[in-house]
């Protein structure tokens, strides 16, 4: 399980993948949904970190469990009827093991602490990933823990060592612009034999910004007439013109690596760019029209385009103004401002 980095945000493939996996919890049985609905009424307020609570761990037999119950019922009746004590004892042993496993299943969720952090912003339609840390408080190794309400549940269940912690991701499909709250996380397990499924819903406080959905195309924002020349340039931190090579330093973008040099075995070398000849534009609310959301969509597209073309741009929303800037950080700052624009209304 890998945590998706910031780079994944504007890759449309991430969003496309998310839509293929239907949320697992929608397929689940009526009883479970009923229990979840009853349980969601009331309950502790969401915190960034919460422990599993005994009163909120539920358990039901799985399909395997019901099947095994039928097998055991058959062996029990057979053994009783044939008055075969050994067969009876083995049936009882299997029944008892299943009952013990029910308790083990339930207790496998107790004494865990979940801590969620805010995820990386996404566009609508993409899956927001919230980094989650599951910690064992009880000094007991946990097997087969599973975060279920995530669009693509991990294939291999990780092992949580006693007193250890586990990093997982919870995904939430972002549907519209704004703040996407993580809400409750469903932590489930079928440990030890898959005969029962215990689950608990832990409310967690974490959120991501969901940027406005960029319009398909947008008018080019008017360039500013005034051009202010900085005498010294920006000394190789821009992205425009090739300036020269320097050795790799930690934190350099892989895009700027001179791969050809690496291939020629000259080591990691970074191409330096400079130049402040970029055009400066304002991406302005007042230059757009339509509903709030379509205006924001157009502006989002303009921001993306401007960053793509390496323009220096500023953002103006009613009541918000972000000064001119450039680069990835600036782009996200602008998009976040749009994500949070008038969302409480």
């Amino acid at each position: 399980m890998s945590r998706t980095g910031g780079g994944g945000v504007d890759r449309p493939a991430a969003g496309a993948r998310a839509t293929t996996g239907a949320p697992a919890h929608r397929r689940r049985g009526r009883v479970r949904r009923l229990i979840d609905r009853l349980a969601s009424a009331g309950g502790p307020p969401a915190e960034a970190s919460a422990a599993t609570s005994a009163r909120r761990i539920y358990i039901l037999p799985t399909r395997s469990g019901v099947g095994y119950a039928l097998v055991l019922l058959a062996t029990l009746i057979g053994a009783l009827n044939y008055q075969n004590n050994l067969a009876l004892f083995l049936s009882f042993l299997m029944i008892s093991a299943s009952l013990v496993s029910m308790h083990q299943c339930w207790f496998a969720l107790l004494g865990l602490r979940l801590e969620a952090r805010d995820g990386v912003p996404v566009f609508p339609g993409q899956t927001a990933r919230f980094p989650l840390v599951i910690t064992d408080d009880k000094g007991q190794a946990r097997y087969g823990l599973c975060i279920e309400d995530t669009p693509t549940p991990p294939p291999a269940a990780p092992v949580l060592a006693a007193k250890g912690h586990l990093d997982v991701d919870v995904g939430r499909v972002a549907e519209r612009r704004g703040r996407l709250a993580l809400g409750a996380v469903t932590l489930a397990t079928r440990y030890p034999f898959g005969l029962f499924r215990a689950w608990t819903r832990v409310p967690l406080r974490a959120a991501v910004d969901v940027y406005p959905k960029p319009a398909a195309r947008a008018p080019v924002p008017p360039a500013l007439p005034a051009f202010v020349h900085h005498g010294s340039g920006d000394m190789g931190t821009g992205a425009d013109d090739f300036v020269g090579l320097r050795p790799y330093r930690e934190g350099d973008s892989p895009r700027q690596l001179d791969w050809k040099a690496l291939a020629r075995e000259r080591g990691l070398v970074v191409k330096q760019f400079g130049g402040d000849q970029a055009a400066r534009v304002w991406i302005d609310w007042d230059h757009t029209s339509g509903s709030d959301e379509s205006r924001l969509g157009i502006m989002a597209r303009q921001v993306l385009d401007a960053e793509e073309q390496n323009l220096t741009f500023g953002l103006r929303l009613p009541g918000v103004e972000i000064e001119h800037g450039r680069g990835d950080g600036h782009k996200h700052r602008c998009l976040s401002a749009m994500a949070r624009y008038r969302i409480d209304g």
Partner: peptide, 23 residues
Amino acid sequence: TVLMAAPLALLLFFFFPRLDAPL
């Protein structure tokens, strides 16, 4: 798990009512 199941299984074995004639 089987070890933990053993006491309950023994209990069931000794106290689970038996049929006195086959069904």
